[in-house]
Design a binder for these strands. Structure first.
Length: 608
RNA sequence: CGGGGCGUGGCGCAGCCUGGUAGCGCAUCUGCUUUGGGAGCAGAGGGUCGGAGGUUCGAAUCCUCUCGCCCCGACCA
């Protein structure tokens, strides 16, 4: 392919509104352009990568007998009303009316439509299990689209759905897809991790996310360096740290330490001084997070509760754990915690001070006030805690003794270096990840509400058990760039590079050079390579090098009069920058060798 | 939705405070000279200054309204 014939306009400068690497590089490389907030044109180069990744997905899913179909982007409201999501789904669901004033929406996902298809066509257990998927453009009207293709409003997604006769078979289907996803991301040529994830409000079911590892990732991941346990920090089980022995139990001493004006935990700990102490270790302090929980509505009343979460001073709170443990619909930091407790930030505590709303609630029925204690504080005593009096801390605090009715649970944020609670041998390593795929066991949520049933061998009707499986196609391509770039531009993984070889004619005005370059283009294409031939005239070699670095195809071939004078052309590896020279006749064989080497390296490095 | 910022040729920006011929770099086109890490010279094309209203002899510039976009936060896959 001649570059002069291709729609590629590279930019030397970074567009002002591009704020993540993948977006900057894709815009500079002329791959994408923004059409509106969160909506992008996929120009030819980008589309080639997208199509390549789609092809990998199709091939791997075909191995598990998944069937491809295509469902409309425009969906009628009726189906969404039937599943009740028409009202539950937020504003991300873009709704509109047709000319007859009927309600429609742009599909952010296709559970309703696929369930409708299956219930209309599948009647018998003999037809199950069934697994269908599509690769389709989705639309979610995100509150704040950002990060280019990583969080657009319009994006391409592979979404698959499986239907089963029972739970056990759904589990089987789940693990089948789990393994298919491992194959897909391995073939993609990026470093990734399947991680255990929080299943959120849907609850009960299990789910894995697939993350491409990248420093710019939005999600924190902890992975045991000894066993397979890898999870999203939102969910990671934190090991129970044994209580440190702080000597014979003391009684609670109110307002024992005065540290006026010092609000930072570490500095307070140093400033806790009395006759027997000159500062305390952080693990002898405690901290409290005051939250407001809202529970699912029962009738008209929404029940709220004040929640005090007590943790060791050097531990952090994981609100997702608290939310799940309480079964809360919503959990927020208490908006008016200072007023509630009667002290300034830095001096809030779990023990009530007379005359405050906290004090009043403390006397009242317990379900409006909940005390939670992290399990790493079980058995701990002689601690400090905020006094709920500005400038003061109590001493001799024993959470379980002093907070009657307190519940003990794991609610701390696990961190790098923590002992793995699964195997008890390894320690957590931290990664940042970009979520590009998810496998989810749905259960009967949709089959029940939409009456998607089959007849079993006893002639009895049962709801099908469902699973759903997504891969963000466009997001994955962007994530691959987030993981593979350098100061000069993109460094494409071979399997999704728009082209594999960038052939630079450094002297298009020179007939001999042009002939050799044209010949090499033909030879390489005949050997099965995808070649972009930079035949642009009147451009300095330096400019072509810069563009080639930016576009980042794995191999670069350079043909110029300088080299041909010595009878050689050059081959450069984009990633290693290794440069080799040889006769033009040897090029195809050399390129083949380089490809084999690159693919071999990918197999070793990719995945885990 | 709360806070902050920005809209000026395709891209990046200046001009606005203090109203008076719309400018610079990149990109594009023509010619000549160049040619191994974003070449030089000469010339050319391209902008209703986001939109509407107002003030004024005169508005990119001042005022009002409005639309769009970006960042931080909350939300979400």
């Amino acid at each position: 392919m001649k570059q002069t014939k291709m729609l590629i306009q590279t930019l030397r400068e970074v567009p002002r509104d591009a704020d993540v690497v993948s977006q900057q590089l894709m815009m500079r490389a002329g791959m994408i352009q923004k059409l509106a907030a969160g909506i992008y044109d996929y120009l030819p180069l980008a589309l080639r990568s997208i199509r390549k990744f789609e092809q990998i997905v199709r091939e791997e899913l075909a191995k598990d007998g998944c069937q491809e179909l295509l469902m409309p982007t425009v969906q009628p409201a009726e189906l969404w009303q039937e599943s009740r999501r028409w009202s539950f789904y937020g504003k991300e669901l873009l709704r509109f009316k047709d000319r007859k004033d009927a309600d429609f929406c742009l599909g952010p996902t296709h559970e309703e439509v696929v369930t409708d298809i299956v219930r209309k066509n599948v009647r018998s257990y003999k037809q199950l299990p069934m697994n269908v998927f599509q690769i389709q453009t989705k639309f979610r009207d995100e509150i704040r689209p950002r990060f280019g293709l990583m969080r657009g409003r319009e994006f391409i997604m592979k979404d698959g759905y499986s239907f089963h006769v029972d739970d056990a078979d759904a589990d089987k289907g789940y693990w089948e897809m789990f393994n298919a996803y491992k194959r897909i991301f391995s073939r993609l040529g990026v470093k990734f991790r399947p991680v255990e994830a929080d299943s959120g409000a849907i609850g009960g079911s299990f789910t894995h996310e697939f993350h491409v590892l990248a420093g710019s990732g939005e999600d924190g991941i902890l992975s045991c360096d000894s066993c397979e346990y890898t999870s999203n920090v939102e969910k990671t089980e934190a090991p129970r740290v044994p209580a440190v022995d702080h000597g014979p139990a003391l009684a609670l001493s109110r307002c024992h330490f005065s540290t006026p004006g010092i609000t930072v935990m570490e500095e307070q700990a140093k400033a806790f001084k009395d006759d027997a102490h000159d500062g305390l270790p952080l693990h002898q302090t405690s901290k409290v997070y005051w939250l407001t929980a809202e529970f699912p509505a029962e009738g008209d009343t929404v029940r709220k509760a004040a929640v005090a979460c007590v943790l060791r001073g050097d531990h952090e709170l994981n609100p997702v754990k608290v939310k799940n443990a309480l079964g809360a619909a919503d959990l927020q930091p208490m908006a008016d915690g200072e007023d509630f407790c009667g002290a300034a930030p830095g001096f809030l505590g779990p023990l009530p001070q007379e005359g405050t709303r906290h004090w009043a609630l403390h006397q009242a029925p317990k379900d409006a006030l909940v005390y939670l204690v992290d399990r790493s504080l079980e058995g701990a005593g002689n601690l400090t805690c905020g006094a709920n009096v500005t400038g003061f801390h109590h001493f001799g605090f024993d959470p379980l003794r002093d907070l009657p009715g307190a519940k003990v649970l794991d609610m701390r944020l696990a961190q790098e270096g923590d002992l793995c609670p699964r195997c008890g041998a390894g320690h957590f390593q931290a990664f940042r990840g970009i979520e590009v795929g998810q496998v989810f066991k749905l259960g009967t949520k949709y089959s029940k509400s939409m009456n998607c049933v089959y007849v079993d061998e006893h002639g009895k009707e049962n709801p099908m058990v469902m699973g759903c499986y997504g891969i963000g196609i466009t997001r994955t391509v962007a994530a691959a760039i987030e993981q593979n770039y350098d100061a000069d531009g993109i460094v494409w993984p071979w399997p999704i590079a728009p082209y594999q070889v960038h052939l630079l004619d450094l002297d298009p005005g020179n007939d001999q050079v042009r002939e050799v370059a044209d010949g090499l283009e033909r030879d390489l294409e005949a050997a099965g390579f995808e070649v972009l031939h930079d035949d642009r005239e009147g451009m300095s070699p330096g400019a072509k090098f810069k563009d080639a670095d930016l576009l980042g195809f794995p191999l670069r071939v350079m043909v110029g009069s300088k080299g041909l004078k010595d009878g050689v052309v050059e081959l450069k590896d984009r990633r290693t920058k290794e440069l080799r020279k040889f006769k033009p006749e040897a090029l195809v064989a050399e390129v083949e060798e380089a490809r084999d080497r690159i693919l071999r390296d990918l197999e070793i490095q990719g995945g885990r």
